[in-house]
């Protein structure tokens, strides 16, 4: 295929970066090479006997390639590989470690919505959706992907700085016996028990309880 003698240094640190199962292959340019390096990408389903080229990532000069579509079946595991080309020479194919979308993805924090009465606040949490090819495609919540998904919720009384932590499995929480006319700030995190996956905490959502009637 026109490749001459492959003496180019290899691409480095070839790895998947995955958030909510949006699976993007990343790598670093071969050492000592400036501009002008181009890359090819291929991937394989583990246990299936062929490597498949990714046409959209053929002869690219960027150092990432979105393989979300090709790796969307999270019941499978994958390898990906990158080869570099410069001035007619090339590198070896450099592979990732085995990629398991289910355990190797990172999860975004949940969406938090809060409402209040005079002495309580109600919190509704929404888990992020799995990456999908297009807006028209049916949404799959990560709740469906991870049956053991739970929420850790933090509630802070801004006046007294007192903080409570709750761990819940369903997505609603009512916190009673609060002080009227007081600011409470809520933040939440997703915790999957097994495989162990934790999102970061969401940004704080603050709300003031109604004044006493």
């Amino acid at each position: 295929s026109g490749e001459l003698y492959c003496s180019l240094p290899n691409p480095r640190n070839v790895h998947f970066e995955s958030i909510n199962m949006k699976n993007v292959l990343h790598w670093s340019a071969p050492e000592g090479t400036g501009d002008g390096v181009f890359y090819k990408v291929k991937y394989a389903v583990y246990g299936v006997g062929k490597w498949i080229r990714k046409p959209e990532c053929r002869n690219i000069n960027r150092t990432w390639c979105d393989l979300s579509s090709e790796t969307s079946d999270y019941e499978e595991q994958y390898y990906a590989s990158v080869k570099a080309f410069l001035n007619g020479t090339c590198s070896d194919w450099m592979e990732t470690t085995r990629f398991n979308p289910l355990t190797d993805t990172k999860i975004d924090p949940p969406m938090v919505s809060v409402s209040s009465t005079d002495r309580s606040i109600s919190i509704i949490l929404t888990a992020p959706e799995k990456w999908k090819r297009s807006p028209e495609e049916e949404s799959v919540s990560l709740l469906q992907v991870y049956p053991g998904l739970q929420y850790n919720v933090s509630v802070l009384n801004k006046k007294t700085k007192k903080r409570w932590f709750f761990s819940i499995s369903n997505n609603t929480l009512v916190v009673p016996w609060l002080e009227p006319g007081t600011v409470y700030c809520v933040s939440a995190q997703i915790h999957v028990t097994t495989p162990v996956l934790d999102s970061g905490f969401s940004k704080e959502h603050c709300i003031t309880t109604l004044k006493d009637k």
Partner: peptide, 24 residues
């Protein structure tokens, strides 16, 4: 799961065969 995760990279790097799976 925690025990396996701790050794997964080490064990899988000892398996060079991409084209065959035992379980899947």
């Amino acid at each position: 799961r925690a025990g396996f995760t701790a050794i997964k990279a080490n064990i899988q790097s000892r398996d060079p065969i991409r084209t065959l799976s035992i379980l899947s």
